[in-house]
Write a protein that binds this DNA or RNA. Sequence first.
DNA 1: TCTCTCTATGTCATGTTATTACATCTGACA
DNA 2: TGTCAGATGTAATAACATGACATAGAGAGA
Lengths: 135, 135
Amino acid sequence: MTEAKALTKNQTLVLGALSGANGPLSAYDILDRLRPEGLRSPLQIYRALAPLVEQGRVHRLESLNSFVACAHDHTHGHHSHSPVVFAICETCGQVTEFSDEKVAQQLRGWAKDVGFKTGKTTLELRGTCRTCLAA
Amino acid sequence: MTEAKALTKNQTLVLGALSGANGPLSAYDILDRLRPEGLRSPLQIYRALAPLVEQGRVHRLESLNSFVACAHDHTHGHHSHSPVVFAICETCGQVTEFSDEKVAQQLRGWAKDVGFKTGKTTLELRGTCRTCLAA
DNA sequence: TCTCTCTATGTCATGTTATTACATCTGACA
DNA sequence: TGTCAGATGTAATAACATGACATAGAGAGA
């Protein structure tokens, strides 16, 4: 098993901010939370986010222009790279992360048929979660 | 069969610009193309886009912050609302639009299981198309 | 130890995407 | 003709993201 890559100071701060939040944060939201730690510019946030997203420790939600800490465990250095689905509640902001092998398989099948080489997959559901529906 | 809704002048211009393009355009790209027609501000573009997207004549690509004309026929006023998948070639910019009932079904199944009410679904594949792979 | 180099960091400026607020125009129709 | 609603026009600004360049610190090797 490979070791998890060590994080730099700013990466640690950014990941901490996202882990501590109970929903997605924009880069500027993160910046506001980290001003007390001395961060001052958006670029510092974006620079820290890039490798975190790359490593899968943070996900970018394209439909919100914001970021969430990955719900899975990264302390042991490895995780699945099958595409992730995000269900985003527009009422409470909570994001549920899951992956679905059937969906992945189906998309791979389409790609194979038409000769498309898939890199990153974005799959986001916007709607209302069970809790908010009940309320 | 319901009739297609009539478009306003600016909506016609914007849809025309998107139909004429051979790939996705940002709102500001569209604006640049429509300056000769007298459009001057981003808001004019965004205002025209909103109902076009609403009606499904235009799709927004979240991962590119840009827009494409829907590949399907809207002249007869009706089209399927099953979620659409976009395959975006990062080399040539071409966007292929398709829908996959199995994927849709699978996602509906998940939503049902956890009690999530899905509104809009975003499903975008970034990668390389057959043509660009061959080149 | 010195210094070279690589990575991370800091800062300013700017580029790109999207909306708020408010004014004006136009056509339907009472 | 008056007025009302929808479409349009314009300025200003908010929100998201990156380019360019300077600085700091840690580790390798002379």
